[in-house]
């Protein structure tokens, strides 16, 4: 993504941020919508658009789980593993989903490159635990290992989103 595109996105919201550094985050999220992850060029574009050094921009990106510095699958499936979900069986959902999709229990991207599975900390849907979020879409739950597998199968055949909001 180019610096001009990023500027066009952040200029209208600039006034909402008292601290100029805070603009780096929306800029990064927007830059990521193009490819689903951030390349060196994207980081440099964010740096040019926000005026902060590329190293600082990268350090911000590296801090957040939902900003990806490596390519991901077409869709990212986040399984909540915090307390409420864990008490309701998130560990079983997580492990069975990982085994089913052939990724390690640390998560990862499926062999066909369609799906990335990752752990997430509390998504705020404790009333629907255990829950799963797909990209930055709505969170669904309660999940079972079976419904999680079905969800992934549905995602695999669904068309790729136009923009990767994560």
């Amino acid at each position: 993504m180019t610096a001009d595109q990023i500027r066009a996105h952040i200029d209208p919201i600039r006034h909402e941020f008292a601290e100029p550094r805070s603009l780096v985050l929306p800029a990064l999220k927007f830059a990521q919508t193009e490819k689903g992850h951030l390349t060196r060029e994207d980081l440099e574009a964010v740096s040019a658009a926000t005026g902060f050094s590329a190293a600082f921009v990268e350090s911000v990106a590296s801090f957040y789980d939902r900003l990806y510095l490596e390519p991901t699958g077409t869709r990212v499936v986040s399984v909540c593993v915090t307390l409420s979900c864990m008490l309701r069986g998130a560990d079983e959902v997580w492990e069975r989903l990982c085994d089913r999709e052939g990724v390690s229990h640390h998560g990862g991207t499926t062999g066909d490159g369609r799906i990335t599975i990752q752990e997430a900390q509390c998504l705020g849907y404790c009333d629907r635990a255990p829950c799963i979020q797909v990209d930055a879409d709505e969170t669904v739950g309660p999940m079972t290992p079976e419904s999680a597998g079905q969800l992934v199968d549905d995602l695999r055949v669904a068309p790729a989103p136009d923009e990767f909001w994560r």
């Binding site: 980081l43 050094s53 190293a55 600082f56 990268e58 590296s62």
Partner: peptide, 25 residues
């Protein structure tokens, strides 16, 4: 790097126990 020399090159990346000193890419 950030405050004195202001070369903006060194940063702490990642977070918590995984944090490490590094430069851009």
């Amino acid at each position: 790097s950030q405050e004195v020399a202001q070369d903006g090159q060194l940063t702490m990346q990642e977070r918590g126990a995984a944090s490490e000193i590094t430069t851009f890419s």
